[in-house]
Amino acid sequence: MRQQSREYITILFICGVLAINYPVLDLFNRSWAPLGIPLLYFYLYLAWFVLIVVLIMVVERSEIRELTESHKSGATRTKGFSRPGGDPDTHEPPESP
């Protein structure tokens, strides 16, 4: 997973925590029912679902990107065993001092 995906995930987590807690949650604590569904439930389930969809996008897209990248560079590393971005472990064998 690339550095960018890690950032997305961190942001997603923070947004998720904020979205389902006070005070954001209180904004939706009303007696209004869009499509006949009480707003509180509507909001919570919608937020939940959106979170999952974004999660799919971040995770699956990063997988595709990683696959193509490893294909391009001819890297020998196994798919799925990704490493932290910027990890300099592909540098050349140590040269003589």
């Binding site: 209180d26 604590n29 006949g36």
Partner: peptide, 29 residues
């Protein structure tokens, strides 16, 4: 007749209407 109907019934019921709001949650936020 679908969720709209169900929630409609609930909202009209005096005991059940509060269940649709956050105030019933013990311990609050």
């Amino acid at each position: 007749d679908g969720p709209g109907d169900l929630f409609q019934h609930a909202a009209e019921h005096p005991d059940l209407a509060p269940l649709l709001r956050f105030e019933v949650v013990p311990g609050g936020y």
